[in-house]
Nucleic acid binder design. Structure first.
Lengths: 366, 366
DNA sequence: CTGAAAGCGCTAACAG
DNA sequence: CTGTTAGCGCTTTCAG
């Protein structure tokens, strides 16, 4: 039977322990300022009755929910080809759990869902939100900031204009996409490659745009014909690689914007009878294990600590929730190293970021 | 400023519309039995004030939360190499959203978390739970059934004993692992292969065990040396394939328990100079696109509709929640087809399952 | 059909 | 230190 044996209330515990509700409440919430013998008696009563506080009642008065929403917009089914998401969630979950917060997952499936999400967020069901906005033109972030819920973004939002002046700075955490890209290309250059091509991701995503910028940082004004726009998918990688090979038969290296794309490129390279890395060296981005380690040859790639990103996002949000009035942007140390405390990226502008470092992982492809 | 402009209450709306709180409440909840002109006035007031009901207050009285927990135990980091999880979640999310329910995600990271999860569930924060229990010895399912929360499992639970007599039947949805395995092996046999090996998954997981059973169903009492136990990972697949090749140099086909394993096997096969499918035909399981389509050659595999599994789990749970007293097991049609309504698997036993069909997807490897 | 009143279970002043 | 007293915002009988 799902008879929901009527759960005991504070009242019941109070009666059993022979104290008032207030005292029980105090004990349950930490027990400060209650004399030891009483604390003990209450604890016992709680135990015996199997009392568990009713969160709804508590929220009603505290206006706190100890819950944060994680919003993931997945216009395409990008997410489902991508462990990225799972890892991120894992990091978030760990951090949230450590602070007794619940994770409410909001997956959106297109415009229709936007209104729903906005409403939910505005409805004050959660204390804050962690949002993954992928595209430049995504209206969701705007809606969310409008909802007046403390928010931290995953990945640099596409609209770094001075908006949201009244919502506080835009907080986000991201990987050092640009720096990582630079490392990748420099590595290729150090190998003696000179005709280094780049297969981009969808350029309406900041991560892809930033990687392209990194590539350009080191390639300077190299032949623009060496850049082929793609979409982060293996199929897209194949297509781009073919184009590139047709246009630039003499290329000797490829930096692909992510591992999936690199895998596609690798396939085309083999199909054309080119050896990797002898004829063409390849490096990817992400270090998505199931992909990077399984390609032939295994992929040299730029690793980003995705789980850590998630953890940091949560930490940032939680910290902000703890400083009631604070809209964030509190000063702090400048460190950007993962395990250190959450650092603000900008002094006090309309934007505060935490940018995680990336590392080059050498395997056989370059 | 996160000044949380004090959200309007029912009271405020009532005042504005010139009616009582009760009337507003009625309108907000469907508006039955309220005369049209009033409904209109209230709607307008709601609109103007931007009123959003306070869920906490509502839950306090209705004892409904319109939220369900999704519990995912991830002893190993299996999840993160696996889009499986993301797809499942997607299906669940869609169904939940369609019924205005929220998804609270509970990720566990080992024993310590079990208590936390159990407490949360017992705490009545959610109306029900969807649980993924992977291992036979996982204590979580037991704890959860103990918590007295309506639950639906993902995948056949490992303990099909008659427990939980007082919690109602154990509901779960699963893929037809056994049938799918049979199809795979039969396909191989139809290709004229006779020395068909099987690389299993971790046999403490029902999915792996069921697939092995399927293999045996058609192979009968074939050489037991043709079965190598593995762990669903590419590395494990390589190891198993090597063993198999050493022991049974004459094998002419391999049925791998999942695509990842198959990918590993493929690599070893190539490394040994064996051609696929000419010398050895290979079929996998899952049809995990990023893997199955990217192997060389592309993998023939058994597809399971993972998203649909998620959707069905949610549907099953929601349906159960709607029949208050009901502990599930209500009679219904016998269909097992995806898009049809939720069917009960067993007449009225201690277990009720929905088993989704699988389909063989032919690519180049077999 | 609509309004008035009584809580849901808990926390937060405020007294004692 | 501990108990009393008010509500938090909403739904729900019960009258009218």
């Amino acid at each position: 039977m799902t008879d929901t044996a009527p759960r005991p209330t504070l009242e019941a515990v109070a009666a059993r322990a022979g104290v008032s509700r207030a005292t029980v409440s105090r004990v349950v919430n930490g027990g400060d300022g209650v004399r030891e013998p009483l604390v003990e008696r209450v604890r016992q009563a709680v135990e015996e009755l199997g009392y568990v506080p009713n969160q709804a009642a508590r929220s009603l008065v505290t206006r706190r929910h100890d819950a944060v929403a994680v919003v993931i917009a997945e216009p395409e089914a990008r997410v489902f080809a991508d462990p990225f998401f799972a890892l991120q969630l894992r990091g978030i979950s760990k951090e949230l759990t450590a602070h007794d917060n619940q994770l409410v997952l909001l997956l959106t499936e297109g415009r229709d869902d936007h209104a729903r999400v906005a409403r939910y967020l505005a409805g004050g069901h959660v204390d804050g939100a962690l949002v993954f906005s992928l595209h430049l033109d995504d209206p969701l972030p705007g809606l969310i900031q409008g909802a007046g819920v403390p928010t931290v973004f995953g990945g640099r939002p596409g609209w770094s204009d001075g908006r949201a002046a009244d919502t506080g700075p835009t907080l986000y955490v991201d990987s050092d996409n640009r720096g990582g890209a630079r490392d990748a290309v420099r590595h290729l250059a150090a190998l003696g490659r000179t005709r280094i091509a780049h297969i981009t991701g969808p350029l309406d995503q900041t991560s892809a745009a930033d990687r392209l910028d990194g590539y350009r940082d080191v390639m300077g004004d190299a032949d623009p014909g060496l850049v082929a726009e793609s979409d982060f998918t293996p199929a897209g990688g194949e297509r781009a690689m073919r184009d590139l090979l047709d246009r630039q038969p003499d290329l000797d290296a490829v930096f692909a914007a992510n591992d999936l794309t690199a895998a596609g490129a690798l396939r085309v390279l083999r199909e054309r009878g080119l050896r990797v890395p002898e004829d063409v060296a390849v490096v990817g981005f992400d270090d998505m294990l199931p992909v990077a380690e399984q390609t032939d040859p295994p992929l040299t790639t730029v690793r980003q600590d995705i789980e850590e990103m998630g953890r940091l996002m949560a930490r940032l949000l939680l910290r902000r929730l703890d400083r009631p009035g604070g809209t964030g942007s509190g000063p702090g140390p400048h460190a950007t190293a993962p395990e250190q405390d959450v650092p603000p990226g900008e002094p006090d502008g309309a934007e505060a970021a935490v940018v995680l470092p990336t590392t080059l992982v050498r395997r056989a492809s370059a």
